[in-house]
């Protein structure tokens, strides 16, 4: 159902001649569906932009939205739907902005019936359908990238790496650890070791409710990777249930240092680096 060159011309002509009437009717229909969540002026601007792009495309003889003459039109459509997606409109509400053109065009063409009207309208209609589908697709893509961005931000937020002491950094892990998050933690911890030149890292899992084999493997790999880089890792805050899981799963922690609490782990590191700690003195005197 491709548009012929004459049809494209006639479409551009039609749109130009009745520009005022068409855009106002178009805006009206869209405004009705959005129920005032977008200002009339903003809406009119968007409709006019689409209108202009469509005229240009028609003049250049667009036969299919995907062809070279449809480039500008696609750009306008994708901007429109990306914005709508970010503003939280639904897919239907976004697509209506395009489909409303069909209604306004039909009203217009009914008043100017000619020999080609039916054929033309079917062709225009097909083009508008393509535009609608394209809008829909861009909308979905924009939403997906929005969700991915948010997930990433959440991941960043939930994995802070803090400096505890000169040469000692710690990652307090809170919440469920899945494989993806464990991987992010691992990379950030190792990068922090390099950035701060810290030879000691404490991974505190007090806030982790459960550990499965995969997560335990990730923690183990982090420890081994840190060793390869010349740093030591201590794991602290292992809960009783987790200790039982670790043993039940048969995961070997080998010679990795584990401590009951973050405080114990820090004391352990300070002792190794030769810093005097209060807890050590009385023991030495007795």
């Amino acid at each position: 159902m491709a548009l012929s060159a004459e049809q494209g011309d006639r479409l551009a002509h039609l749109l130009t001649e009745h520009a005022e009437r068409l855009t106002s009717r178009w805006t009206e229909i869209v405004a009705g569906s959005l129920r005032g969540r977008l200002s009339r002026a903003e809406l009119a601007r968007q409709v006019q932009e689409l209108h202009r792009a469509l005229i240009d495309a028609g003049r250049q003889g667009v036969s299919d939205l995907a062809d070279e003459h449809g480039g500008e039109l696609r750009a306008v459509l994708s901007e429109l739907s990306t914005n709508r997606a970010r503003q939280g409109f639904s897919a239907t509400e976004t697509a209506i902005s395009v489909f409303a053109l069909k209604d306004s065009l039909l009203e217009l063409m009914e008043d100017e019936k000619g020999d080609n009207t039916l054929r033309d309208f079917v062709a225009y209609s097909a083009l508008i359908d393509q535009m609608g589908l394209f809008t829909f697709e861009t909308f979905v893509r924009a939403r997906e990238s929005l969700i991915a961005d948010q997930a990433e931000q959440l991941l960043e937020l939930s994995t802070p790496v803090v400096k505890l002491w000169e040469g000692v950094v710690a990652v307090p892990l809170v919440g469920t650890l899945d494989s993806a998050r464990a991987q992010v933690v691992m990379e950030r911890l190792l990068q922090t070791l390099v950035d701060t030149g810290s030879p000691y890292a404490i991974i505190d899992i007090t806030g982790v409710p459960a550990v499965d084999t995969q997560v335990a493997q990730h923690i183990l790999k982090t420890v081994v990777a840190a060793r390869l880089m010349g740093a030591d890792c201590i794991i602290s805050g292992i809960r009783p249930q987790i200790a039982q899981t670790i043993v039940a799963l048969g995961i070997e922690f080998g010679d990795i240092a584990t401590k009951a609490s973050l405080a114990d782990a820090l004391r352990h590191v300070l002792r190794m680096t030769g810093v005097e700690t209060p807890a050590r003195r009385p023991r030495r005197e007795s």
Partner: peptide, 11 residues
């Protein structure tokens, strides 16, 4: 040794 290199070596 870079972190990415260390992770790869472990793998």
């Amino acid at each position: 040794m870079r972190p990415a290199v260390a992770i790869t070596l472990v793998e």
